[in-house]
Amino acid sequence: MKYRRFLILLITESLILLGLLLWGHYRGQTEFVRLTGLKDLVTSLMLTDLSIWTEARYTRHPSQTDLFSAFQDCPGCLEHFPSGSIVSVPPHLRRPEEIP
């Protein structure tokens, strides 16, 4: 019977997902302890942002950007303003070794 095979597959996948969610819950608690430890680092270094995008100052510190230009200075980057999105990146900026 095909429906039996389908139900077995459905239940197996549901159990795998449930298992992953339980693993996530357990791992989340362990990770929570690690992250709580990192909070001391945030306090001692007086950090304001996560170190995710390091390409520009407004992406490295999004919370500290200017009032008037959320994404500035870089044509081709994600922009609030339409012109910034359509102006392409100058070739010399693509080759960091050529920057004096």
Binding site: R27, G28, E31, E55, A56
Partner: peptide
């Protein structure tokens, strides 16, 4: 997709929160 031009990008070992 997330990295963009960033040369330095952290390893994303994230806390599973669903």
């Amino acid at each position: 997709a997330l990295k963009g031009w960033s040369v330095l990008f952290p390893s994303l070992k994230l806390r599973p929160v669903i």
